[in-house]
């Protein structure tokens, strides 16, 4: 029994047909064509599907799609403003953090949400924050260093408001 679901995606209101049993990950990828959230394990272990839901990082394979009614969902696609990448995205690039790249969109979202809550973290706190995101290429050190660099302001100020407070 499909129903129309309305929510905000990367700052824009969307209306889409949703099945009761669909996950948010399926909805984003299969119905809305946003393939930045990856389906790694589909049961909440790997973090490749991480998105930001109402300002908090969540694994979208663990979220039942109909429950996001009226909420704000941000994917890695919604972080850049025009051609300009989000500081986290730029830092990951400059530090050469992505290897195969499969975990990267999830890492980007987890790190972004984390810095919103804790703008001046220690290295240990960053490691803990990213512990739910697995990287098969074991690029953890570079991801951690890149987030640390962003928190020290090396990649400019983190954009406020914009998509997180639609």
């Amino acid at each position: 029994m499909s129903e129309i679901l309305s929510f905000y995606l990367n700052g824009n209101p969307v209306e889409v047909l949703v099945k009761p049993e669909q996950t948010l990950l399926e909805l984003l990828r299969d119905e809305l064509g946003l393939t930045s959230p990856k389906c790694g394990c589909n049961h909440g272990d790997c973090g490749a599907c991480t998105v930001i839901l109402d300002g908090k990082a969540v694994k979208s394979c663990l979220v039942l799609a109909p429950t996001v009614k009226g909420k704000k969902v941000v994917t890695a696609d919604g972080l850049c403003s025009g051609e300009k990448l989000h500081p986290i995205q730029q830092a990951f690039l400059d530090y050469g953090a992505p290897q195969c790249g499969y975990c990267t969109p999830g890492m980007v979202m987890a790190a972004t949400a984390f810095l919103l809550e804790n703008p001046k973290p220690t290295k240990e706190e960053i490691k803990e924050a990213l512990s739910g995101n697995l990287c098969r290429c074991a690029g953890y050190e570079k991801y951690t260093e890149a987030v640390l660099a962003v928190s020290k302001g090396e990649f400019g100020l983190l954009p406020e408001g914009s998509d997180f407070n639609v």
């Binding site: 909440g44 839901l53 990082a57 969540v58 694994k59 663990l62 979220v63 987890a110 924050a129 512990s131």
Partner: peptide, 9 residues
């Protein structure tokens, strides 16, 4: 319990 992105939900 798990990590913070799971504890968020």
């Amino acid at each position: 319990i798990a990590g913070f992105s799971v504890r968020n939900i």
